[in-house]
């Protein structure tokens, strides 16, 4: 890897960590109701409450908070489903796109409501502008705000004592959207427009090509089926085209929140690899920063709200260590030459003329480092946007994004959900430490007892059940196998990646798997639902249980949770759970594929 690659990674991390404190401090003030935005926009905020018939002073028990979250998300899912099914009857559809099929509409509605943003469809060929804006972009805001609201409720569980309530879900949701997500998105969208990201209601443009393009395409019979010759091979015909349709639309406003809200659903099918969604190196840097910005800053917010910023820094340190370590696995893996191509004498060395390494599926303007760094960031966070095709990564390079998702999306993770997942791992870590020394574990002054650990067990066990169970079922069912076009280990990796993505609410796709089928749309949709809400509910239950407890002063037997020792213990807990659960499955996919690739060099 060239030294410029190290600099790019270093600059990215420095800017990210430098922004964590100011933004984290601001978000803490928002949730405390003390920011300048709270004061200036209070009339607007109160007007929303009056319109919705909400009393913002009414505190909620954890069960009320959870039910409000469920009802709100049910309504969001139903709305996005209806918009897709009725889009042919609704305005802002200049391409006259038809209704989305029921299974795809279900998958997409669930995907955007759960902050997963798995996309079985191609945006520019499926969704009207109205569906993209009113359905998908709105859910980008609201699903992100839901995750952050659950996190704030959990933090109140730690900071309150002998309390029955966790705050008001509607207030947390409104403040997150109004004071955090909207301002950041407006600023980022405007900067992206300045860089060339498209934002328009105009219909798609048809342009003349500077050179006619000729290609072969399958010939269709009168019945619309592909004609085949006597040998059973498809009959093709030569086609020459002189024009191209360029999809446009209100992309920048969606791209900004899809990155900031760790949603990841692209306006266009190829997501941020599309030149109108991510045109320049600067737009690429800003979009990459936006992926991890709020998850990183929320660690500091957590520290402020529990009254000890060292606790937030410790968690951010644990996340950063894992992220950096895995960046330095993926990027060098992609920078290495492909042995198959090397055997053919292809020059794959990095030079002034080329990025070198494995450039299949990567944009020339981003190169190896920015593709690998994005892949790790987007799967460390539960973002899932891509600027390169993960299916074309080397086996090791592709295994890391997959494993990051399988770790439970706690290395930065989704906005809100990543940190509450990591805090659950912290509870398990102090529990393990407590077992070692025979003392009741404590975290932030709250005793961690059997109930919290039972809830933590649900949080940790649900995703592996969805990922491994879903993969196993898909590979046994004919409908599941019918979508796998790559034979052997790589085909297995594609299915495992799809369920790892849905079962952890990431949303990125390995590609290669034909997932827009009734089977995958349904199975992945159900996986996304359980992965989101059956983790958020036990987290809120933990919050409710902790809020009711008194705060125990730290004593000589208390394990300090802001030290490097605890950071190491936390990292060990996350990695061990992730490794023990998923290494057998990874061994069948990317590990086998890597060994097959290395065997090329053997005599």
């Amino acid at each position: 890897m060239a030294h410029t690659g190290y600099w790019q990674i270093a600059i990215y991390l420095i800017v990210l960590l430098a922004l964590a404190k100011p933004l984290g401090g601001y978000m803490a003030r928002v949730y405390q109701g003390e920011s300048a935005a709270n004061r200036w926009l209070a009339p607007l905020e109160n007007r929303f409450y009056r319109l919705a018939g909400v009393d913002p002073r009414q505190e909620m028990h954890w069960t009320g908070y959870a039910v409000a979250m469920l009802i709100f998300n049910l309504l969001g899912t139903a709305t996005v489903y209806a918009l897709q099914r009725l889009q042919h009857l609704l305005p802002l559809n200049p391409q006259v796109l038809g209704a989305v099929t029921p299974d795809s509409a279900f998958n997409t509605a669930v995907s955007f409501a759960t902050n997963t943003n798995w996309q079985g469809y191609g945006g520019e060929t499926t969704m009207s502008y109205l569906t993209q804006m009113l359905g998908l972009t709105v859910q980008n805001f609201l699903s992100a705000a839901t995750g952050m609201a659950v996190l704030v409720a959990l933090i109140r569980g730690f900071s309150r004592r002998n309390a029955d309530t966790l705050g008001n879900f509607w207030v947390d949701l409104t403040r997150t959207t109004l004071y955090i997500l909207l301002p950041l998105s407006v600023v980022l969208a405007l900067v992206l427009v300045g860089q060339g990201v498209v934002q328009t209601f105009s219909p798609y443009r048809t342009v003349q090509l500077t050179q006619p393009v000729g290609y072969e395409q399958p010939k269709l019979g009168v019945d619309g089926q592909v004609l085949k010759d006597t040998a059973g091979k498809p009959v093709t015909e030569a086609v020459v085209t002189k024009e191209q349709t360029i999809a446009v639309g209100p992309a920048a406003s969606q791209v900004a929140i899809k990155q900031l809200g760790t949603n990841g659903g692209g306006f266009f099918n190829v997501n941020s690899a599309h030149p109108l969604e991510n045109p320049t190196p600067l737009s690429n840097l800003l979009e990459m920063l936006a992926i991890l910005l709020i998850p990183a800053a929320l660690c500091y917010t957590f520290g402020v709200l529990v009254g000890d910023t060292r606790q937030g820094w410790a968690i951010l340190a644990a996340m950063t260590v894992v992220l950096v370590a895995l960046v330095f696995v993926t990027v060098p893996a992609e920078q290495q030459s492909n042995p198959v191509l090397a055997a053919l004498g292809v020059d794959q060395a990095a030079s002034a003329q080329q990025a070198g390494g494995n450039m299949e599926g990567k944009e020339t303007r981003f190169g190896i480092v920015n593709s690998g760094l994005w892949a790790v960031a987007t799967t460390a966070a539960s973002n899932g946007s891509v600027n390169s095709m993960h299916d074309s990564f080397t086996p090791v390079g592709g295994m890391i994004p997959m494993w990051l998702m399988q770790l439970g999306e706690v290395i930065f993770g989704g906005v809100g959900s990543g940190l509450y997942g990591m805090i659950v791992f912290a509870l398990v870590a102090v529990f393990v430490a407590g077992l070692m020394i025979g003392r009741t574990p404590e975290y932030l002054g709250k005793k961690i007892e059997a109930y919290e650990i039972k809830m933590a067990a649900i949080v940790i066990l649900v995703p592996p059940l969805l990922v491994l169970g879903g993969t196993a079922l898909a590979l046994m069912a004919d409908a599941g196998k019918a979508s796998v076009f790559n034979p052997g280990a790589h085909g297995f990796s594609e299915v495992l990646y799809a369920f790892s993505s849905a079962g952890n609410n990431n949303g990125s796709a390995f590609g290669g798997l034909s997932a827009n089928t009734p089977y995958y749309n349904s199975m992945l949709g159900v996986a996304m639902l359980f992965a989101r809400y059956w983790l958020a509910i036990p987290v809120l239950a933990i919050a409710g249980s902790l809020a009711a407890k008194k705060i125990v002063p730290a004593g000589p037997g208390t394990l300090p949770t802001h030290t490097p020792l605890f950071v190491a213990l936390l990292i060990g807990t996350v990695l061990l759970v992730g490794a023990l659960t998923f290494i057998p499955a990874l061994a069948l996919g990317p590990v086998v594929e890597h060994l097959q690739l290395m065997a090329i060099n053997q005599p």
């Binding site: 469920l70 899912t77 489903y81 299974d103 509409a105 809400y533 509910i537 036990p538 239950a541």
Partner: peptide, 30 residues
């Protein structure tokens, strides 16, 4: 409009409300 998937979604959220109830019962009994 096809209501199969809307009903499936509704069933899931009803089940999730059951999880909320179950978690609270467990909390009160522990």
């Amino acid at each position: 409009m096809d209501f199969t998937f809307l009903i499936l979604t509704l069933l899931f959220f009803a089940l999730s409300a059951g999880l909320v109830y179950g978690c609270e019962r467990l909390r009160r009994s522990s």
